[in-house]
């Protein structure tokens, strides 16, 4: 099916440097995770001791675990809310307040993180004073804050996909007697599933590497991974962090490959 094309020299060189620019920092990060020296700039021989130490470093493992929990919770909620909002925006015509809703939903895309983090902190503190909830900030408040900005990204992705879905498919189902809820779950949802998946992954990634908003909205016992990484600048970044990053990278690569394969086989079926 696909034909092998010989790339012209210029394109090949540009591509080579482009990829080198993107990936050489990642490669060097992985290489230095096997460095036996504690200094990140000096190569002291091959060693896997940082991986061993990493598994004994409860603080770092805990933080990674917290981050994963927050990221999956907020990505899931953001996808649910974002999908509902997109359906309302795309399928419900020009209802009253539609442009306001669109604007408010996507505002976090352009809002500075510091501002969002600080307003969230203020909101949680004053809510605590007024209604006694949330009485302590922690994973829940971080997740709420992450959902707030992740919804914006999900809406953008799902909305554009939903616009391209052929309405006549849904109308045909309605004609054949399916109720709107059934149409949504059986027809619409499978059609926009790829957008949901990419929205989920994007929300997950954004949540995983967010530092600013999480710092503002965290409380006792809810340190996430980026906070530990940035906090270690005080005493110098430890190669354990390289080791942890390499493991995360490996997991991400495996996931992306699996998702890519699933999508490909899905396309073939269609």
């Amino acid at each position: 099916m696909t034909r092998k094309v010989k790339l012209p020299g210029f394109v090949f060189t540009a591509m080579f440097f482009g990829y080198a620019f993107l990936y050489s920092p990642i490669v060097s990060l992985v290489i230095y995770s096997f460095n036996s020296s504690k200094l990140v700039t000096v190569w002291g021989g091959f060693s896997t001791k940082w991986y061993v130490e990493l598994f004994h470093n409860d603080a770092l493992i805990n933080a990674a675990w917290q981050s994963l929990k927050v990221a999956s919770l907020s990505a899931t909620c953001a996808v649910i809310l974002g999908t509902l909002a997109s359906v309302a925006l795309v399928r419900f015509g020009n209802f009253f307040g539609r442009s306001l809703m669109q604007g408010v939903l996507t505002a976090p895309l352009v809002m500075p993180e510091v501002l969002l983090g600080l307003t969230m902190l203020m909101l949680f503190v004053s809510m605590d004073q007024l209604i006694g909830w949330p009485d302590a900030r922690g994973l829940l408040t971080i997740s709420i804050a992450h959902i707030t900005f992740a919804v914006a990204y999900v809406v953008v992705i799902v909305q554009s996909r939903l616009k391209t879905v052929d309405r006549s498919l849904e109308e045909a189902a309605l004609d054949l007697g399916a109720r709107p809820a059934k149409v949504f779950f059986v027809i619409t949802l499978p059609l926009i599933a790829p957008a949901l998946l990419s929205g989920w992954l994007l929300a997950f990634t954004l949540s995983l590497d967010d530092l600013v908003i999480a710092s503002f909205t965290s409380g006792p016992g809810s340190t996430t991974l980026p906070m530990v990484v940035f906090s270690s600048v005080r005493l110098g970044v430890n190669p354990q962090i390289n080791a942890l990053a390499s493991i995360l990278l490996l997991v991400v690569v495996i996931c992306v490959v699996l998702v890519g394969k699933a999508v490909k086989s899905g396309e073939r079926k269609n």
Binding site: L121, G221, V228, F230
Partner: peptide
Amino acid sequence: VNYDVYDSNEMVEAKLMAGRSGY
């Protein structure tokens, strides 16, 4: 002991100034 970490003195200031930090 719950041991949480921060990345700048300014972050501590922001949280304590807002109140009810829990620390």
